[in-house]
Amino acid sequence: MSSNDTTPKILKLPEVLDLNAAGRLHEQVLAHRGSNIDVDASEVDRLGAQCVQVLLSAVQSWRAERQDFKVVQASEAFVKTLQLLGISDESLLPQEMLK
């Protein structure tokens, strides 16, 4: 994994991101540290607050390194959950996804 790769890598999120998935997600995210990441959340059906914590922390950590960690595709469930939780970070919840 080269750290200066500018072409973003795709991180595809699984369908279920509930309480039990947070640890695994965290590992995955850490494994992509250093690369620009495009998150594909189009399959996400269930999303728990702890996974949102991991994702938002990733966004902020990537941002601090001036890199991108952003959601490029999202399911309706993903969008709704973030809205419900009051998360409006542009990287996690791009404006264009809000109809």
Binding site: A22, G23, L25, H26, V29, L30, R33, A49, Q50, V52, Q53, V54, L56, S57, A58, Q60, S61, W62, A64, L84, L85, G86, I87
Partner: peptide
């Protein structure tokens, strides 16, 4: 109207995936 407060959220390296950082 929900406002999520994530001030306590640490960097991803320090994050405990099973922790609770958000408050509302």
């Amino acid at each position: 109207q929900v406002r999520c407060e994530a001030d306590d959220l640490p960097s991803v390296e320090q994050l405990d995936p099973e922790g609770a950082y958000f408050s509302w």
